[in-house]
Simulated assay, not measured.
Amino acid sequence: MTRHIDIINKYKAYLQLEKSLSGNSVDAYLTDLDKLLLYVGDENKDYKAIAYEDLQHFVAGLRDLGIHPRSQARIISGIKSFYRYLLLDGYITLDPTELLEAPKIGMKIPEVLTVAEINDMLDTIDLSKAEGQRNRAMLEVLYSCGLRVSELTSLRYSDVYFDEEFIRVEGKGSKQRLVPISQTAIREIRNYLYDRNLVTVKKGFEDTLFLSRRGTALSRIMVFHVIKQQAELAGIKKNVSPHTFRHSFATHLLEGGANLRAIQEMLGHESIVTTEIYTHIDREALRREILEHHPRSKR
Rank of each mutant, 00 (worst) to 15 (best):
A73D: 11
A73Y: 08
I75K: 15
I75S: 10
I75E: 07
I75D: 08
I75Y: 05
I76L: 13
I76Q: 01
S77T: 06
G78K: 08
G78H: 14
G78V: 09
I79W: 08
I79Y: 12
I79S: 13
S81M: 03
S81G: 08
F82Q: 10
F82C: 06
F82K: 14
F82D: 05
Y83F: 15
R84M: 04
R84V: 15
R84Q: 09
R84W: 04
Y85Q: 09
L86P: 09
L86N: 12
L87Q: 07
L87N: 03
L87E: 15
L88T: 10
L88R: 12
L88C: 08
L88D: 10
G90V: 03
I92L: 07
I92G: 02
I92M: 07
T93L: 13
L94S: 11
P96M: 03
T97V: 07
T97W: 11
T97Y: 11
E98Y: 10
E98P: 04
E98S: 14
L99H: 13
L99E: 04
L100F: 09
A102C: 05
A102P: 04
P103D: 02
P103I: 04
K104G: 10
G106P: 13
G106N: 06
M107G: 11
I109T: 11
P110R: 09
P110K: 09
V112Y: 00
L113C: 12
L113N: 10
L113S: 14
T114E: 07
T114N: 00
V115F: 13
V115T: 11
A116N: 06
A116W: 10
E117I: 01
E117P: 08
I118G: 01
I118E: 00
N119T: 15
N119A: 06
N119C: 05
D120R: 12
M121P: 13
M121L: 05
M121D: 07
D123F: 07
D123H: 15
T124D: 10
I125R: 04
I125E: 03
D126T: 14
D126P: 11
D126L: 05
S128R: 12
K129A: 08
A130R: 13
A130V: 06
E131D: 04
G132T: 02
G132A: 05
G132R: 03
G132F: 03
G132S: 04
Q133C: 05
R134W: 02
R134S: 05
N135S: 13
N135T: 02
N135E: 12
R136G: 02
R136Q: 04
M138I: 08
E140L: 05
E140G: 05
E140M: 02
V141D: 01
L142R: 06
S144I: 11
S144K: 00
G146T: 15
G146C: 13
G146E: 07
